[in-house]
Write a protein that binds this DNA or RNA. Sequence first.
DNA 1: TCACGATTTCACTAAAAACTGAAAATACCG
DNA 2: CGGTATTTTCAGTTTTTAGTGAAATCGTGA
Lengths: 173, 173
Amino acid sequence: MSKELPEWEKAREEFVVQWGSLGTQWGIPRTMAQIHALLMTAPEPMCTDDVMERLEISRGNAHTNLKDLVGWNLVRIITKKGDRKEYFEAEKDVWKIFITISKERKRREIEPAMQLLRDCAARTKEEAVGPGRDFHQQMKDLDEFLSFGVKVADTVISMKHASALQWAMRLLG
Amino acid sequence: MSKELPEWEKAREEFVVQWGSLGTQWGIPRTMAQIHALLMTAPEPMCTDDVMERLEISRGNAHTNLKDLVGWNLVRIITKKGDRKEYFEAEKDVWKIFITISKERKRREIEPAMQLLRDCAARTKEEAVGPGRDFHQQMKDLDEFLSFGVKVADTVISMKHASALQWAMRLLG
DNA sequence: TCACGATTTCACTAAAAACTGAAAATACCG
DNA sequence: CGGTATTTTCAGTTTTTAGTGAAATCGTGA
């Protein structure tokens, strides 16, 4: 006895599976990407058991990845009164998702890199000639570029969707 | 008998190692990130054996990752006359590195995702009500956002560094 | 406080990814 | 051609990461 899914649920199934394998290509755990896809397209918040059943994964796996998504601020926990289970709901607004991911990546990926570049630049600031000087300069160039990129990103992040759109249209126009 | 490295080479060593482990955090193979760091800070082009020796890795590993970097257009092959070895040289200009990575990521990561979103949107375009309609709309929203992002990226990618800077300054100012 | 549903942890296993080393293929030179 | 330096491939191994499932912990209401 297999449940007959409506057409849109079949498309959703496809979306979840493929989003999962796309995820692995950019270094995101398959399950995490799948859960995110599932929740982004969920009409209602889902609980751990819903996710386990739908993706046929263990409780531990579902739990860990749900909590990781909460840690990325891409998913929030909902509690219903009279029910002590936790339900999970993904942010669906595309602009907000973009802002959130940008912030997190900045914090987790860019900032540590900048720290390293600064350390390496500082250690070689006395180098006045030849390869030593070039190395120092390279570290500074990379750092400056990232700093600048972060400033731009911070500006965009602080914008409302509409202002960002308007600004981008000007660039394109 | 261990070779005494100049101070800047010690900093470089640190850079290579740490860039490698940063790399793994954003889904880039450690060795690939290390080789890239090594070449970005190399005074002269290096051959496969140079890289093997410096990073203490096997020939196969060095070879594969060097060629992958060439495939990303982050590294190019240099041949010296009277020497049949291949030498490798990384792009050092930060703006060019940025452009290259943006292009490649667009091609490898964004475009496949957009394809999926379009398929899923197309399969559900008849859905007129309720969750089916919401799903369709979500796919369209994601697709539109990415399309727009790609347009912006294409514009930036086509700019010279100086114009991009000027444009960004206006945003910040 | 006890019982129970829910969450969290974690030792273990499974799967995937990265790396090795040597053999095979290729390119160049006389 | 034949010899040699170099590049490429790939089966096998190691390392890393992801996932399981059951036990431990937590939290709430009776």
